[in-house]
Computed example of a mutant assay.
Amino acid sequence: MRSVVLSWQLWALLSAGFAALTAIFAKVGVGGINPDFATLLRTLVVVALLAVLVTATHQWQSPGSLSGRSVVFLVLSGLATGASWLCYFRALKLGDAARVAPLDKLSVVLVAVFGVLFLGERLSAVNWAGVALIAAGVVLLALR
């Protein structure tokens, strides 16, 4: 059982499930609210949840124990996340969740390309075929 809990596949599948719920809940929630304000409310909930989790599991770390490189890249990641969420909520306000969410998942294709270009990761021919199929699926799901 412990190996399942430590499996990246389990956590990735849970992430996908929660991301799907995020899209549905956000589409309903953003209905009568400005999308930027909706993003702020969502972010406050995320911050509160994480503060409770980190406190309950005694995972707080001293800022001095963090490397400058880690801090810079986490700040950049936070800025990218904020921009992504703002764009996502605006898209949900304007479009159908069933079309917005798949197009948002084009990020899977971009992560594969960026991972190869910037992180030196390697993908096999089968992996690239999967990336191409995801891209094709995104296009088909986004069509009217």
Rank of each mutant, 00 (worst) to 15 (best):
S7W: 02
F18Y: 10
P35V: 00
R90I: 13
V4K: 09
R2M: 09
V109A: 06
W11Y: 05
A129K: 08
L74K: 13
D36C: 10
L40F: 13
L13C: 14
S67R: 07
L143K: 14
V116I: 04
L50M: 15
L74C: 15
L110I: 08
P35I: 01
A101R: 11
G115Q: 02
A125R: 15
V131K: 03
R99I: 03
L92I: 04
V100R: 09
F89N: 06
A101I: 08
L21I: 10
G29C: 03
L49M: 14
K93Y: 14
A135E: 09
V28R: 13
V71E: 08
C87Q: 14
R144W: 09
G137N: 00
L10T: 03
G130E: 02
C87Y: 12
K27Y: 04
I134H: 02
I33F: 14
K93I: 07
L106F: 15
I33E: 14
T57P: 05
S15E: 15
G29S: 05
A56I: 02
A20P: 02
V100M: 08
R144T: 06
L123S: 03
L94H: 12
L41Q: 12
L141N: 08
L106V: 09
R144L: 09
Q59Y: 05
P102I: 02
T22P: 01
G17I: 01
K105I: 02
V54G: 04
Q9N: 11
T57D: 01
D96P: 12
A80H: 02
R69D: 13
E121W: 00
V28M: 13
S65T: 09
V4R: 11
L143G: 12
G95Y: 05
G137R: 05
L117M: 09
G82N: 08
V138E: 04
V4S: 08
V52Q: 02
A48S: 11
I33H: 14
A91Y: 00
N34F: 10
L106M: 15
F18S: 11
V75R: 05
A38P: 01
K105V: 01
F18G: 07
G120Q: 05
L76W: 00
V28T: 11
G120A: 03
I33L: 15
L133K: 05
Q59M: 10
K105L: 08
L79P: 01
V28C: 10
V131M: 04
L6T: 09
D36K: 10
A23P: 04
L49H: 00
V47H: 07
S15Y: 14
T55C: 07
V4W: 11
F114Y: 11
A56R: 12
A19W: 15
V109H: 06
S15A: 14
F89A: 06
V28N: 13
V30T: 00
V75W: 00
V28P: 09
V111T: 08
E121L: 01
V111A: 12
V4D: 07
G120P: 00
D36V: 11
L106K: 09
V138G: 01
D96W: 15
S15F: 14
V113A: 12
